[in-house]
Structures are given as C-alpha cells and as structure tokens.
Design a protein around this nucleic acid. Structure first.
Length: 229
DNA sequence: GCGACAG
DNA sequence: ATCTTGTCGC
C-alpha cells in the first residue's frame, strides 16, 4: 500500500516566510457566499510540466449545464519556483493568468485543479486564482493536503465533510464522484460557498472520476503538449 | 519530538 | 507533477 511518502526537499526559509505572509493577506480577501444564480459558462483550469522547468497551463470553457466545450486556450512558459507543499499557487498561478488573458469568452465560475480553502491557511490555488481575478471559484483535488475526514460511502454522489482537526471548521467535502474510485476533495475558492461548490462539481460529472471542466483541461493539456515540444 | 505533505 | 510495466474488464 502507501508505505512510500513523497520526499519534499527543504525549502528556503526566507521564501516560505514571504509567501506565507502573502497568503495571510490574500486570505482576508476571500469571500464565501452563495452564488447568485447558476453559471452560464464554467471554466476548467489545469497545469502540467512538459519538462522540469517549463509549465503548460490550460483553460477550457464549457457551457453550463450543457457542458459543451466552447473555448480552449493555453500558455507555455518557464517555471521559476520549485514545488513546495502549501505554496503550489505561486508556482502555477502566474502562467495560468497568462492563459486566462487569451480567453475571448468570460466564464462565470472557475473550477481549478487543486484545493480551494482546504489548505493550511485557507489559500489553496483555487482560492488564490479566484481572489486575483475576483471571480467565483472552487477547487477540485485528487489528494488531501490538510484536514480530517471519514471515507465517504461507496455509492456515487456520497460525500463526507473535510474538517480542520484543530478548529472543527468545515473546509471542504470529500466526494465519491464515481463508484470504486478514490474520492475527490471539493472546496470553495472565492465568492461561492461549500454547498455551491459541491453542487457544481456534481452537476459537472459525466460518468468519469473528474468533473468535465478539469477533465477536459487535463485532456487538452495532453494535446497541447505536442505543440510545445 | 512525531507525522503530513495539493500538483 | 512525471516516469513506467503489467493487469483487468468492457
């Protein structure tokens, strides 16, 4: 089983202090509230790394609730920062924003690959991107970063709360998006709440583990990867 | 001091 | 995230 844990090289203390301060400031700008109405367009954001020092960020825009692809863009560039648990956004957000500028349509909600507020300082990349663009956003992650939870029931659609072990605060929901598959971690990012985040994730499912926005962003990343190499 | 660690 | 061999099931 999972007897091997990922090894994370020690990060520069000064850098971590600086990034932590930035997250604590951004955290004050996060607003969790009901989304006024359903979105007409929903975007999926995802990044991959064709080489160790380059990043490929993809954004797809789909209609909602139809989930038809209406636009797909990407940006390929260099990556400066290393991956440090808890600071993923500083490594991926810059390039994602460059891809965002290429969009000709304006999505109403952003579904980001990674956590929303289900983060040590409530500033996962989903919240980070939402705050920077001041857009409603949510995070959908495949692995837990922080928090405690009970394994959700086996039935598709089952969910269980992801709680902060210290404060007991609800920071996300663990969702069984597909039977016999490891659950997803859904959390709000900005300008929407947990109920809305989970509802959107559920309504974007089409028989796969991942909701369509992130699934298609992931799919197109594979295609664009051929264009950049 | 001992675990945990998105992508 | 990325790499990688093999296995299972429709």
């Amino acid at each position: 089983m999972a007897y091997y844990r990922p090894y994370h090289p020690p990060a520069d203390p000064a850098l971590v202090r600086e990034l932590t301060a930035t997250q604590n400031e951004m955290r004050q700008r996060v607003r969790l509230e009901p989304l006024p109405g359903l979105p007409k367009l929903i975007a999926g954001l995802d990044s991959s790394f064709p080489t160790p020092d380059t990043i490929l960020s993809v954004i797809v825009v789909l209609t909602f609730p139809g989930l038809e692809l209406v636009e797909k863009v990407y940006n390929y560039g260099p990556v400066d920062l290393p991956y440090v648990p808890g600071f993923l956004s500083f490594r991926e957000a810059p390039n994602l924003l460059l891809a965002y500028e290429k969009l000709t349509t304006q999505p109403d909600v952003l579904m980001v690959d990674g956590h929303g507020i289900a983060h040590p300082r409530r500033m996962g990349i989903g919240a980070h991107i939402g705050v920077l663009l001041d857009k409603p956003s949510l995070g959908v992650a495949k692995e837990k970063l922080t928090g405690d939870y009970q394994e959700p029931a086996e039935a598709q659609g089952s969910r269980s709360p992801l709680l902060d072990k210290k404060t007991g605060e609800l920071i996300g929901e663990v969702l069984r998006s597909k039977e016999r598959v490891k659950p997803l971690f859904v959390s709000p990012g900005h300008r929407l709440d947990q109920a809305t985040a989970t509802t959107l994730a559920l309504r974007c499912l089409r028989g796969y583990k991942l909701p369509e926005p992130t699934r298609l962003a992931d799919h197109w990343a594979e295609q664009f990867k051929k264009e950049v190499r």
